[in-house]
Nucleic acid binder design. Structure first.
Lengths: 356, 356
DNA sequence: CTGAAAGCGCTTACAG
DNA sequence: CTGAAAGCGCTTACAG
């Protein structure tokens, strides 16, 4: 039988409330609730009584109080930049991985969005005020000065950082090799005039992809023609704009194939080609990069270079947790400075053997 | 000149540290840092000294401590279900809106993912343990029992809830009308045999869309043929599977048009139609629903019924914040129980006038 | 095996 | 206009 409600209890039950209800000290309740190694041997009967009282009062340990006392919030921060209006698919893939393993590790995650990594990084320290135990930086592009604002008391892990971060592990992929494989594949399919739509110049990743592209051409004794390399942003609009302009500046003959620095760019190309009456892959083959949802949403679906983004997100959580534990223990757990994940060419429908 | 570092200070500066450095009480520091109405008139010189000390020590108020004392964390929770592996585009649109206005309102947001709204809801109360001040439920489908576990001490707002939540505001859209408009548009374009691929039965939203579809047919004196309504999941695969099966069960003649209950379904249809050698929109017109990124990623881009998901996400934050303030003030701020947002037909390339 | 005490870092009344 | 005190709800040593 439920005990009569005193009066509409506005506030949640506390440890003391439960203790009172069970006739024990708050400390005993704490021990039971945490299944602590300390006093792991509270009399079974007492434990029962406590558990019962806790359930009856719907007791939930207060996270803030717990964090304050234990110096640990059990929540991880994820920081990223939202360009234009939206979180992009790259982030989303990573985030899915983060969420999945955060869930099994019993961690909450809060996400912080910045406008850019240059002028907005000074907001980062503000996030590291005890509300998170560690920070995952997704695709940060720091300037050397920006680096200085990096939180000192908060362990961090970075994905695809453009610069090596002090006290932080960097997870990256072998983008050069991924690009090399993709372009080699195109060449083996008989394509010769291969256009590359590169990502923003200055971005390490974009440059690695461009490097892989050129290396593949050279290794197959194909000319590296500067006019066949376009630099764009990383968005679909940037892709279609770049390709449109290329066509409008004297290039009347379509390329055999296009290697894009990401899937968004590829989808932009798809659109332009469609408008031109060029068919993919019959007339022009296309390869993207990342293997985000975009690659599966286009028609035809994109052949693309997969980065194991989801896995990387999960791994980031694992590593960060190790660092947090070490940090709390006071030991300066040292880690490999960066971990490189392999890429993989995913063949779908946007590449065909060259006709004729 | 920076003062000599005592020793590698492992822990962040506290209010007391700053007070000591500035020669004032911790309380004075607190007042200054918060720009509090209390003691808003701390002598300018003192204030300067405090600010300076705080900056020098890189002082950051500890969030947990602050939350514990002020009973407010300044972070909002967003709960959703991840079906299969991924957060879907519907959620992402909402989430973008949430993040945008949370940023201007100076709120953090932490996201909770559940496996489903039936067996997994009991995890919800565990999130409401002081780490968030309020909860936004994105697309919850509660059973009446599930409703009971809903957090008592935590204000909440729901988007597209399937059931009316006690003490919660529900934001929805006029899906029936949206569907009606979409199908009417198809009819006006000369289409007669209009297939509807409906969302999961039992989902209020899916049923509203189906109702709008039927209403449009009837209002234009077209027959409502049960064999022209397919029930599917909400994924692209579900869409292609449903359409494939329809074709394989004796329906040799393609429909004039297909009205899909969401964009994913539409993209699935696009794929199947492509394989059948049917062209969109030349042979078959297609309309989606939601206007997620998917609608712009397909080729042709989808004509679709837009729900203002981003705006709704932003609005959810505003309303939740009001509720939190009221809750904290002890007043039982009462709100309209649900707010209905308008839908809008977005015309893109997947619909054409019927040939012949 | 269990409890009383101190403290985590802040804020909120309440005195001066 | 400013400081000393109490308390937010928990955990972590430390006594018994």
């Amino acid at each position: 039988m439920a005990p009569p409600q005193k009066r509409k209890t506005k506030r949640a039950a506390t440890l003391a409330d439960v203790g009172r209800a069970a006739g024990v000290s708050a400390m005993a309740v704490s021990a039971v609730m945490n299944n602590a190694q300390t006093s792991s041997r509270i009399a079974t009967a007492t434990r029962q009584r406590i558990l019962e009282a806790a359930q009856r009062l719907r007791y939930r340990p207060n996270a803030a109080a717990r964090a304050l006392a234990a110096r640990r919030m059990n929540t991880l921060g994820v920081a990223t930049v939202v360009e234009g209006q939206d979180l992009n698919q790259y982030f989303l893939e990573v985030f899915n991985g983060v969420m999945a393993t955060a869930a099994v590790r019993n961690q909450n995650v809060t996400v912080f969005t910045l406008h850019d990594w240059r002028n907005d990084v000074d907001r980062l320290p503000g996030f590291c005020d005890g509300r998170i135990d560690g920070l995952i930086l997704v695709g940060p592009t720091f300037t050397p000065e920006g680096l200085k604002v990096l939180p000192e008391h908060t362990p961090s892990v970075a994905l695809h950082s453009n610069i090596s971060l002090p006290n932080s592990v960097n997870l990256e992929t072998d983008e050069d090799h991924g690009a090399f494989e993709a372009v080699s594949h195109l060449i083996k399919q008989g394509h010769r005039r291969i256009l590359h739509i590169a990502g923003p110049s200055g971005l390490v990743g974009a440059e690695r992809r461009a490097r892989g592209y050129e290396r593949a051409l050279r290794e197959h004794n194909l000319p590296v023609d500067p006019s066949m390399k376009l630099t764009a942003g990383y968005s679909s609009q940037a892709g279609s704009a770049a390709l449109k302009e290329w066509f409008s500046t004297g290039h009347r003959k379509a390329p055999d194939a296009i290697f894009c620095a990401n899937d968004y760019l590829a989808s932009g190309c798809l659109e332009v080609l469609g408008h031109q009456g060029l068919r993919v892959p019959d007339d022009v083959s296309i390869v993207g990069f990342d293997d985000t949802l975009v690659a599966r949403a286009t028609l035809p679906q994109l052949t693309t270079v997969r980065q194991p983004l989801r896995e990387m997100g999960g791994r980031a959580v694992e590593i960060l947790l190790e660092q947090i534990d070490a940090h709390l223990a006071g030991s300066e757990h040292s880690h490999p400075h960066s971990i490189v994940f392999p890429t993989e060419l995913i063949q779908r429908a946007s590449v065909a053997h060259r006709r004729g």
